[in-house]
Amino acid sequence: MITLRPRCLLGQRFPVQKTMAIEQDEIEKIAALARIRIEPAQVGQVTRRITEILRMVDQLQAVDTSDIEPMANPLDATALLRADEVTEVNRREAFQAIAPAVENGLYLVPKVIE
């Protein structure tokens, strides 16, 4: 049996290296972008919690990554392509049976103004 030198991973609560404190109006902007309504009374608490998460995440800023290729796929695999064949059949009835609002085969949404 070998003895392991302890090294702390959990003891610290992520010291803040560079605070990217997010402001309440920024949360409102992000929520608008994500199309999520936040109850006005909740905005403060949501902002606080997200700030905490971002503080934790801000540890990344301390790492020099200038020469490192970003990794989008863990296997660095490349694409296999599909042959150009029609493989799907019309299943409109099944798909629209679970839709909130349809008429004449169309999905309905509140009027879109261009």
Partner: peptide, 20 residues
Amino acid sequence: RSKIFSGSPTTFGAEPNTQA
């Protein structure tokens, strides 16, 4: 013949949502 990311046909002018 088929869509860029699915096997649906690309024919123009089909009944709404029958090629989705």
